[in-house]
Design a protein around this nucleic acid. Sequence first.
DNA 1: TAATGACCGGATATGCTCATCCAGTCAAAC
DNA 2: GTTTGACTGGATGAGCATATCCGGTCATTA
Lengths: 240, 240
Amino acid sequence: MSKAGRPPRDPAQRAERAHRILDAAAELILRWGYDKTTIDDVARQAGVAKGTIYLHWKTREALFTALLRRERVRMLAEVRRSAPHTPRDLFAALAAALLRRPLLRALVAGDSEVLGKLVGQKRRGPGALDSSTALDDYYAELTRLGAVRDLSGDHALVIGSVLYGFLVTPGLLPGGPPADERVAALLADTVERATATGRALPEDAARRVGQATLGYLDAVEELAQRKLDDSLSPLHGGAM
Amino acid sequence: MSKAGRPPRDPAQRAERAHRILDAAAELILRWGYDKTTIDDVARQAGVAKGTIYLHWKTREALFTALLRRERVRMLAEVRRSAPHTPRDLFAALAAALLRRPLLRALVAGDSEVLGKLVGQKRRGPGALDSSTALDDYYAELTRLGAVRDLSGDHALVIGSVLYGFLVTPGLLPGGPPADERVAALLADTVERATATGRALPEDAARRVGQATLGYLDAVEELAQRKLDDSLSPLHGGAM
DNA sequence: TAATGACCGGATATGCTCATCCAGTCAAAC
DNA sequence: GTTTGACTGGATGAGCATATCCGGTCATTA
C-alpha cells in the first residue's frame, strides 16, 4: 500500500486530526475497554497510520490521558455554560454532566471494566474537582460569606464521599438503578443540604457567592484546559 | 496423637465451642484474609480438630457466613444499647459501630483484600441495613409522621449512597484519612440533613419517631439474630 | 518535510506437566 | 455418642516452553 505526502503543515488540520484520533479512541475504549484497545485499532478506526499517532503522543498512555483530559474540559465547559451561581446549581450541573459521560463516570467510580490498568493511576480524589486547592479556596470563600457552614476543612471529604457514593451505589442496589437525572438531583440535593447553613443570604453576599462559584469553575476549567493543551501540542505525557 | 471422648453433649458447651471457633476465624481472616485462611488454620487456632468444625458447619463458607452474622448481631446490639430515638442518633451510632468493626467495614465497602472471593456473594446493598423492607417501612412511618421529607421511595438510595461513600472515600483522599469518629459524625450529619425536614416536630410525633426508630432496630436485630441462630444450630448454610 | 507501515523485541498469553494444597470425609479411638 | 486426624481427590498454583500480541521505531515513499 502507499499513500503519503505533506498536506497538513497547517496547525488547524493537525489539531483536527488529533481530535479524530481521540474520537476513535473514545469509541473503542467504550466498546472494548482500555486493556483491549490497541493503538492499531485506534489508527484503523481513525483512518491514519499507526506512526501518525506517535507524531501526536509519545506513548499509548499519553493518548488516553489526552482523551480523558478532553472529556473533562468538555464537561466543565458544559457546566460553565449553565452558569451556576450557587453551590447547589454547580453540583446539580456537575452531577448531570458527569453521569452523561461514561468515561468520566468510569474514572470517578474507578471502573476497571472500562479503564483497565489505567485505574489506580489516574485516580486521586474524585477526578473532575481534584484540583483540591481550588475547591478548598472556593469553600473557604463560601464559608467566609456565610453561604456554607463551617466544616473545618472537611468540605472536600463530604463532597467527595457523597459524589462517590451516589456514583457507585445505584448500580449495587436491588432493582434497576434509577434514571441518571434522578440520581443527579438527589446528589445535588444531598451535597447542598450537607453543606448549607439554612439561613438566607443578604443580597450582597448572594452576589458574591455567584461570583465565587463562577470563579471556581473558571479556575478549574482553565486548569483543565491548560492540561489538555499540554496533551495536544507537540509532545506531552503526564498524569491527568 | 490421641484425645477424644464425649464431654460436651451439653448444648451450652457446644455453643461455647462454636464461638471459640468463630473467634479463631475472626482473628485469622483479619490477619490473612479470607482466601488465605484455611479450615486447618482455624481448627489449630481454636484448639479443636478439623472434623469438629464440620460438626458445626457444613462448609467453609457456612462458617464464615456465621462469623459475619455474629458480627452483625453484635453491632446491632451495640447500636440498640445506645437507644437512639431519632434517625440522626441511629445513624451516628450505626456509623460509629460499623467503622469500629473491620469485618463489617470490609463487607460494606466490598474490600476484597479481607474478604477475598466472598465479596460479590455476600453483598447486596450496604449490608447491615439491607433488610430493605424494614428500612422502607421505617422511612414510610417517618414520612407519615413528618419527621423526614418525602423522597418518594428513594430513602434507601440516598442513605445507602452516603453510607457507602463515606465508608470508601476517606481512604482515597490525599492526606491520611480523618479519625473514624470524625467520619462517623460527618456521615450521620449528612444523612440527617439529606432526609430531615428542618421543621421541629410536635412532642407527640417525636415520641412516635422514637418508638419507630427503636422498633426498626428491634426488627432488624431480631432478623439478624434469627439468621445467626440458624447459622449456629445443628446444620446451616445460607447467604447472609 | 509529512506520513506510512513493515519490523523489532519485550511483554503477555497459551498450553502443558507436575507438585502442592486444602475442603470435606470417615474409620478408628475413646 | 463424640471427637479426632489421616486420607482423598478436585482444584489451584508453580514452572516452563512456545506462540502471539502490540507498543514503539525508523527506513522508505511521495
